[in-house]
Design a protein around this nucleic acid. Structure first.
Lengths: 245, 245
DNA sequence: CAGTGGTCTAGACCACTCC
DNA sequence: GAGTGGTCTAGACCACTGT
């Protein structure tokens, strides 16, 4: 599965070393990492080599550097691109609105064939399932139906999702390295329409997301949004560094 | 408007120099650019400095480098992220299907207040308008309604869009440096439903896109897709370089 | 073979921040 | 002032492609 047998470049080895410490939690967000000088001593390489590794980590959003101060593990990234979508709670709060999450289900079930396929399991295998409704100022804006791979997140069912919604829990505790989004327009069924306090004839945005960690599926989630209350947006600047907003 | 009065870093100057040649067409896609050695001689800098400039241009997708061969201006970029969406024609052809575009309108009109606002013009100003239907194997998959800023693309109306659809024409001839996407779910009106050969009760994905070049609006376009025949997707790998598919 | 890019070194100067 | 990162240099070795 691993590419690059012919030995990694030195700067890449440093990147790997640091990335690993961040991914496995040894260096949590905000943690100060060794200075270039220290890394040079530790690895026995030239400063330019260490510098390149760190520069590329900055550019990947993994660390933040401040001249004259030091280098730090980046705060849990709102991520680069479509991933802001991941956190509807903070998005709502940034608008200055009230956010609330109603849990509708948290359970262990047998995987149906399609769920099994999505999560790379066998039909009938045990999977975790949760459903919840996200509300903005007490108006439903998202109905979230989620399946979680129990081999990756065995403690999922024991979480107190009233304190932290499922998506935030997973983002914080199961860093993923691969993500897939599909956006569809659909009409809600009767039950969904009722939960979302909308008509069955009004269209919805359906955002389906899958995430992986080291090529193992973590979660498969479908987020249903009343289109009248929610749309997806992104903005790019191609010059300089890509900046979002 | 320009940042960085305190003189750009040397490597950044090289990046700028090359970027400009590419943007203004002096170096078209596929053009071979000077070797590192030549650039070192030309700019009087160390090779590492030139190398960093070129490396960052690769990473931005502006150029392609092949060890032992040379450096070349990248082929007209399918762009990085959501921008693949820009070219529905190539997307359809990649699936091995037949692509066709029916032009419904190409005209000069007076800007309505909303169009004027989107394009940063005044209501009543002259704008170009085009509408077309994109078909996959003779089935309509996208209804495109576009407004174009005549100050940026004065020759828009004279184009032969039967040879090259509007989106491709603009991508090729008016490189933009900023882009905004908004995705909505809507129901089509009667006319749209008829054009798209669908029911008015079936939901559509509505992709609205605006592009800018040097902070000037270029085009505002709304693409209506029958959801049953089209969905948007993206896939990320957070490790290594972001790769899409 | 000469040319290209990919990487690496061991120094260096600077602007900045914190104490 | 000591420490940090941002940048730059003038060399170097290597693997690779072309002819």
């Amino acid at each position: 599965m691993k590419r690059d047998l012919p030995t990694l470049a030195l700067y890449a080895q440093v990147k790997d070393h640091i990335s690993r410490k961040i991914q496995d939690g040894t260096w949590p967000p905000g943690h100060r990492l060794p200075s270039e000088h220290e890394l040079v001593a530790q690895f026995g390489m030239a400063r330019m080599t260490v510098n390149r590794a760190l520069r590329e980590l900055v550019e990947q959003g993994r660390i933040v550097r401040v001249a004259g101060v030091g280098s730090f593990v980046a705060e849990n990234k709102p991520q680069s691109t479509l991933l802001q979508i991941a956190n509807i709670a903070s998005e709502i709060r940034q608008r200055g609105h009230d956010y609330r999450c109603e849990m509708l289900a948290v359970e262990r079930i047998a995987a149906s064939p399609d769920v099994a396929a999505w999560l790379d399991l066998r039909a009938g295998d045990s999977v975790f399932h949760s459903a919840c409704l996200h509300l903005e100022n007490d108006t439903p804006v998202q109905l979230e139906e989620r399946y979680v791979n129990p081999q990756v997140v065995p403690e999922y069912l024991e979480q107190d999702f009233s304190a932290m919604p499922p998506s935030e829990y997973l983002v914080r505790n199961v860093p993923f390295d691969q993500i897939e989004h599909v956006v569809d327009a659909v009409l809600p069924n009767a039950e969904q329409a009722e939960r979302l306090a909308m008509e069955v004839t009004d269209p919805c945005l359906l955002l389906t997301r899958r995430t992986w960690t080291r090529n193992t599926p973590v979660t498969w989630v479908r987020c249903l949004h009343p289109a009248s209350r929610y749309s997806l947006g992104s903005r790019f600047k191609a010059d300089g560094n890509p900046s979002f907003g």
